[in-house]
Design a binder for these strands. Structure first.
Lengths: 340, 340
DNA sequence: CATTATACCCAAAACGTTTTGGAAGTCAAG
DNA sequence: CTTGACTTCCAAAACGTTTTGGGTATAATG
């Protein structure tokens, strides 16, 4: 059926060894022979069996990524772009990308990681949406399994990651809003177990302090990083007797949900109310009005993470194992006006 | 390092065979023994090597899906949801999901499929965004490789698919617009090589005929299924001396881009201009105004496709191999008004 | 008691590679 | 003509499973 290395060897009256070594570019095969081998191998449509190679080489030539699903209708564009970056880079390095889906901290999530690690199904794993105390970090580190992460955890374990300095970003955003005359700046966050929440929250507080606004706990709500979460949280905030004049969403989706809530109570975003998000997804560019956001280089992050992971797997030293990038504040019409 | 079946056998003073058969549930192993085996296997953290199993069993326990990328910033929420459906269902059946990215009809795309097929790396493949004459269908059919598709191709080859009757859907949408008083209904399509374009276009034409509107070629533009594509196409349409009063986008993203173009020329969508899309993504629910769309069950489609694929791989007959579903017209504020 | 079932278990082959450790041939130097 | 150094090739082992085709008790049957 499918053509194996044995078929190629037989056809050429060469040993399997020689065919294998010819194709793998070893020096101890005559140039003429190598040419013959590569030619007929190609002609016969020979592709080495991945399973056999994996078994022998003891590596999978694959990396894994578990999507943090929040239900069937998860559609955070962040992850589309992140996966695109992972996929492109993996393909460029002739690796497979294995994808699974599981809600954070679920039993399903544990099963997936256990399977990948124990069955040696992937060579390394990319983590995202880190949690402060992240069982994955513990588990992978204990099993000595290579991984890299988007963001970091608050744990003893050291591991390679790329982090976006969202604290500084959010502080900058608050200063921008303060400069435009806002004094009642609300914040819609995420569950506190996520690192991103802690950092962005700190940025929010830092920004308030910098512009001299007293923190008001009434102006804080919690979402779940989805549009609907942002929508519901914003409804609460906008129902206050003293409602905020600006709302910061922990991510773009949250902000987009908030925009909808604002419209429904008759507020015009970009005039009566300022709204801003975080991520810099395409969607934020096409809202009405376009959304002010902190843009992070999602695709590049994913790409770089894969490259770090590969080095890590190969045991090469990373010259930079803790990369920190700055998100870019992109001011659009949703906040680009003076309040009062 | 990692524990193999040999370790388990040694510990139990049993043969490898018996351990294997005990774990696989064969009848010829004593209940007591089976219990012992499963217990210690679990205790030792034994997980069979995927590669070894694949090699011996001659199957991969994995399915593949190639994402049609249109550049680094592809973020069609359609695919997020589709992947979620594929991933969940694959995981539920203890399968891996392999994902790669490649632009349609590119050399990269060919390489990926060739690799998966020749290296027996996946047991089956899910196709989406079908083209009228689709080389993938030809290639996979010729190689006798199991696959299923979202949508169909215009080819001799018969294969299992799930199709959404978007023609009827779009005709229904045009009738809705006609009933609201629109006579100049524009259409922003996709490249003609895609099946979805041909069908939705046919639906558009059918709808025009049904409400007695003469087709006007000036009211047709071509996008590329992205927000930006829709934006640019809509700019052209809105610059016409006799501009349309309604615009139908071939998908939600196209429509969302068109909404932005409309805003930029000072038109209020849902009053001066009607806009509608197709897909029923979450994003369409949160636009301003909320977008009328034809909702297709993306997640369920993906799930069902995987199940069809598995049956196909197993050689079982599909009782239904050509499934046709109807999209649901969801009327929202973007078209829910009478024109003039 | 001899024979036949039945219940459990196992040795060895096979899957398709890569890698180890030579072997044979050729050539140049002494 | 030997010797040593290259060059080019290869047989066999190994990776960790699953599966084939028995084998050996023990129990049931005549």
């Amino acid at each position: 059926m499918t053509v194996t290395i044995r078929d190629v060897a037989k056809r050429l009256r060469l040993s399997i060894t020689t065919v294998s070594r010819a194709l793998d570019g070893y020096a101890d095969v005559a140039p003429r022979t190598r040419a013959r081998v590569t030619r007929t191998a190609r002609a016969m449509g020979y592709v080495p069996s991945r399973a056999a190679r994996q078994l022998r080489r003891q590596r999978a030539d694959a990396i894994g990524y578990v999507l943090p699903a929040s239900g069937p209708h998860f559609t955070d564009p962040f992850f589309s772009e992140f996966i695109a970056g992972l996929g492109d880079t993996a393909t460029a390095h002739n690796l497979d990308l294995l994808i699974s889906i599981a809600p954070p901290d679920s039993a399903a999530e544990q099963r997936i990681y256990a399977r990948w690690v124990q069955a040696r199904q992937v060579d390394g794993i990319v983590l995202s949406r880190m949690r402060l105390r992240d069982w994955r970090v513990k588990y992978l580190a204990e099993n000595n399994f290579p991984f890299v992460a988007h963001g970091h955890a608050r744990m003893r374990v050291d591991f390679p990651y790329i982090e976006l300095d969202s604290q500084t970003g959010f502080a900058q955003l608050v200063r921008h809003l303060g400069a435009r005359g806002h004094r009642r700046i609300a914040y819609i966050g995420a569950p506190a177990k996520f690192t991103l929440q802690v950092e962005r929250w700190a940025g929010y507080r830092q920004g308030l302090a910098e512009v001299g606004i007293k923190f008001d706990p009434a102006l804080v709500a919690e979402g779940d990083l989805t549009r609907t979460g942002g929508y519901l949280a914003a409804q609460r905030l906008l129902a206050l007797r003293q409602r905020p004049s600006a709302i910061i969403g922990v991510n773009d989706l949250t902000a987009i949900g908030a925009m909808r809530a604002a419209r429904e109570v008759g507020l015009v975003v970009g005039r009566d109310l300022a709204i801003a998000g975080y991520d810099g997804t395409d969607e934020a560019e096409h809202t009405d009005p376009p959304l002010t956001t902190l843009k992070q280089p999602i695709y590049d992050t994913a790409q770089r993470l894969v490259e770090m992971l590969l080095k890590h797997v190969a045991g090469e030293p990373l010259n930079e194992s803790h990369i920190i990038w700055q998100p870019a504040l992109i001011i659009r019409a949703s906040t680009d006006f003076d309040f009062k």
